[in-house]
Design a protein around this nucleic acid. Structure first.
Lengths: 207, 207
DNA sequence: GCCAGTAATGGACAGCGTGTACAGAAACCG
DNA sequence: CGGTTTCTGTACACGCTGTCCATTACTGGC
């Protein structure tokens, strides 16, 4: 019943619909885009939309899922190599991927679609990061001073914040390599160092 | 033409509508909530809604704006005191505020409303943080090693990630004071320290 | 190159939520 | 208490949704 992906017409139709969704959402915001807007921009009949996706949300979900699959595919080669160290290769790969799929990343990071897309993206990143941190702790025989779950969430939070800034800055402020280095310096050494201070930060009382 | 806020009926109506919005959004998600759902839960006529707010988005915006105003009011006393140091008082105040307004914060941090609420919240926090960082650099006569804008965005990113985790964890994992201390330790000292390592992190090549 | 199968099309339809209007009932404030 | 403001119920037009179906256009295998 759903069209077969092997057919050239199907591939073309889906590509057009996805591109139309992304560009329209960046222009007007997700809520302001109707199915008819999408099919009109894609130059397709409205009925065609419903033979591929159940609704707008479904289309968005598939865009995000495909993007995550593609990213996972790229990160796979790094899985057992340097990741236990701190080379930043996975982070760099994400910046590169985001550069290629800039509009889709911008749509997601803006939180379009009631944040569903961003939650999906964040959840995948957080899970991956937690896995790496856990493996690192086991491999290097160190005990994390802060729970791995919190560590992973905070890391993804600052990573996505910097990625978002980088993607929305016009003109592009730096190369993916520089952006990654900056992010890793900040994240690993901390804000006391990043602010320009030397040595250890003063103890926290957080009264 | 819009009802006067002084009237007791008006205060009651607005409070009911806001509470209804927040609880419904947490249950079903923003997009799945209709104006009639809101007025039904608030036990008000649908027409009443439109004499206070132009639409669902307007109501959400006002919830967020009011929350930000309330938070700013609480942070004001700290503005010229200890903020130049690293006491974490502003961060603690945010955790306390979030604890009191837990549901509203959860709605916002989930990115409901196409991320508009979260963007508004993030923008306000980022601006405030950038101001503090800038003042600190001037006061202590240090030169930030990373641009203040990026620093502010990354800080807000990790702060909101931890706050989100803390608010969604069931049961509440720790007191606001502990959560703040953990966040500040992580943020100021960095992930190398947080992971359990001693000394300086290895240099980044981020090839 | 043909042709059986599959996809795309346009038009029609019911259903639902929106936002507006207005007249009458209810509550407020001084 | 009385003048004013707010709340209520009802009604309406509108736009978007999701489905259906008969027709046309394209594709891939033979």
């Amino acid at each position: 019943m759903p069209p077969q992906a092997g057919d050239r017409r199907v591939r073309r139709t889906r590509r057009l619909l996805r591109d139309a969704l992304v560009s329209l959402v960046l222009e007007r915001g997700y809520a302001a885009v109707t199915v008819e807007d999408i099919t009109e921009r894609a130059d397709l009949g409205r009925a065609t939309f419903y033979s591929h996706y159940t609704d707008k949300d479904d289309l968005l979900d598939r865009v995000v899922t495909d993007l995550l699959d593609e990213l996972a595919e790229r990160l796979r080669p790094l899985e057992l190599g340097s990741e236990v160290g701190f080379t930043g290769k996975p982070a760099l790969e994400i910046f590169r991927h985001a550069q290629e799929e800039r509009d889709a990343y911008r749509m997601i990071l803006r939180g379009e679609g009631d944040g569903r897309a961003l939650r999906q993206f964040t959840a995948a990143q957080t899970e991956a990061a937690a896995g790496v941190f856990w493996a690192r702790a086991a491999h290097e025989e160190v005990t994390p001073r802060i729970s791995v779950e919190v560590l992973a969430r905070a890391w993804v939070g600052e990573q996505l914040a910097v990625l978002h800034w980088w993607l929305e800055s016009q003109p592009r402020p730096m190369e993916p390599e520089e952006a990654t280095k900056m992010l890793l310096d900040l994240s690993l050494r901390g804000r006391y160092w990043a602010n320009g201070f030397e040595g250890e930060p003063p103890a926290q009382d957080a009264q």
